[in-house]
Design a protein around this nucleic acid. Structure first.
Length: 203
DNA sequence: CTACGGATTTTCT
DNA sequence: GAAAATCCGTAGT
């Protein structure tokens, strides 16, 4: 399927976040594709967003990628253990991004089972299957997306996002998750997910 | 199914 | 030195 263009990413962050739902995130590992449908995202709008790493234009070696061109991956470690992937949006020097919060496994699911639990796909119980990719840290582990991919060009051939299938999506809007420190930004309605999808992290 | 507390280490102050 | 865009196991409903 067709890769999303630079122009897709180089737009308003909320729009990109909403339109990423239903698209396919692909990571090629050892010549094999791992892929998942994007079912949950959150927008982080830089300077005016206390929940964002780039709040008040804070610029560090960690978040430098957010200041670059749209269509690159921003991968960071959270709580010392988990890799989270974002898609950089808008033009240069405008540090905004979309966090990929959950995927529905599509391709290479057996590899995801191995990456997540060190088990065969058939050995997973119901809870483990559901937990393959239903959270930002979980999908990072399942898809083998690590800090090494920070700054990766999403128009390249290793990590990219493609058009989805034609389907009608019902999108739910809500507050973001895990940002209790962010004061007024706690209530910003910048989380979007596909209604009734089983791999959404939290209703 | 939900709720709670602990784990663990990078990052910034 | 403290906080952090989270996850997991266990216990309970």
């Amino acid at each position: 399927m067709k890769k999303l263009s630079r122009d897709f990413y180089n737009r308003d962050t909320i729009t990109v976040a909403q339109e990423l739902l239903g698209k396919y995130l692909v990571h090629k590992v050892d010549g094999e594709e791992l892929a998942g449908k994007i079912v949950e995202v959150e927008a982080y709008k830089g300077p005016l967003d206390k929940a964002a790493h780039s709040y008040n234009n804070r610029r560090t070696s960690r978040n430098e990628v957010m200041y670059g061109e749209a269509g690159y991956a921003y991968v960071f470690i959270i709580y010392g253990m988990y890799d989270c992937m974002n898609v950089v949006t808008t033009e240069k020097e405008r540090p905004e991004a979309v966090l990929i919060r959950a995927l529905e496994p599509v391709k290479g699911i057996d590899k995801m089972a191995a990456n997540r639990f060190g088990k065969e796909l058939t050995e997973l119980n119901k809870r483990e299957y559901k937990n393959l990719t239903n959270g930002p840290g979980k999908l990072g582990k399942a898809m083998k997306i690590t800090r090494a991919l920070n700054g990766e060009d999403l128009l390249g051939d290793r990590l990219y996002i493609t058009e989805g299938h034609v389907e009608k999506l019902e999108i739910v809007t809500s507050k973001r998750i895990g940002i209790d420190y962010a004061e007024e930004a706690i209530d910003f309605p910048w989380r979007f997910y596909i209604k009734d999808n089983k791999f959404v992290s939290k209703i």
